[in-house]
């Protein structure tokens, strides 16, 4: 891995989705809607450019639908950009949904191998890290039971344990710090802190301003598929929170106004 240049370079990234109103695609919809395709373009990302240096931690905040998760998925190569590019140097570990690739009929141990290989680790490397993964997941006796017997917490623990032990250069974290019980959340946060201290590059999406403020060196605020503001986490978060509260207040006002009038009309005596 070369340390020259940024770890992540996002250049004028656009992502457009086609939305169908008919739901599930079928030949039926193709035939029926041959002449009037009910497809709608949804422009989720509208030209985003930024760079993340090696060992930097960047937090991304924004309202629901601002494009945070889409951005992260594009970085994880799940989507192909409509235009623009994402370049990442080194191995990427996406912590988008923990335990997403588990097969319920296989044991925890077997799933470690399948899941690890999906993340790009060889069998040999995985064998070396097996003990560390099992220990971190705290599943000891359960590791040989089928995953279908696991609770959702155990699932998440195993998923997190695999993802943080793949020795990735870049970690993409999407809200996963909010899973599991209090103790495990603490442990995850400590692990993320450790990884940051080790010099990994981290991009995290979170609704929790605390997480972003504590961990990030820089914060990006996404609004309607564009970067609204970028810079010091404290300042950006402050601006974001202020804007959100203002908007919420104005929305509430709008919602309240007609009700007030109605009340006035209903009760002229008051």
């Amino acid at each position: 891995m070369s340390t020259a240049g940024p770890a992540i370079r996002v250049k004028d990234l656009h992502k457009e989705f086609l939305l169908s109103h008919s739901g599930i695609a079928s030949l039926k919809s193709l035939v029926l809607q041959w002449k009037r395709p009910s497809l709608e373009h949804l422009h989720v990302l509208r030209g985003i450019s930024f760079e993340v240096a090696h060992s930097e931690c960047v937090g991304i905040v924004g309202r629901n639908g601002a494009g945070k998760s889409t951005l992260l998925s594009l970085m994880a190569r799940i989507y192909k950009p409509t235009s623009g590019s994402v370049e990442i140097s080194g191995r990427v570990a996406p912590l988008l949904e923990l335990g997403a690739g588990f097969h319920v009929d296989l044991t925890g141990l077997e799933n470690i191998f399948v899941n690890g290989m999906i993340l790009g680790i060889s069998r040999k490397e995985l064998e070396k890290r097996l003990d560390a993964i099992v220990e971190f997941s705290e599943l000891y006796n359960h590791i040989d039971s089928p995953v279908r017997t696991y609770s959702s917490g155990m699932n998440a623990r195993l998923g997190f344990a695999i993802a943080v032990h793949v020795d990735a250069d870049v970690l993409l974290v999407d809200e996963v710090l909010a899973v599991g019980d209090y103790e495990f959340r603490e442990k995850c946060q400590r692990k993320i802190d450790d990884l940051k201290a080790e010099g990994r590059t981290i991009v995290m999406v979170s609704h929790s301003g605390d997480d972003v403020e504590r961990l990030s060196d820089r914060c990006i605020w996404l609004q309607n598929g564009r970067i609204e503001r970028e810079g010091d986490p404290k300042e950006v978060l402050e601006a974001y929170v202020t804007e959100s509260t203002n908007e919420l207040a104005s929305q509430r006002e709008e919602a309240m106004t007609p009700t007030n009038e109605a009340e006035c009309e209903a009760g002229p005596t008051s």
Binding site: A76, R77, P94, A100, G101, I118
Partner: peptide
């Protein structure tokens, strides 16, 4: 499809 939507391979 749930796997395809979450992880690249």
């Amino acid at each position: 499809i749930s796997l395809v939507k979450k992880i690249y391979f």
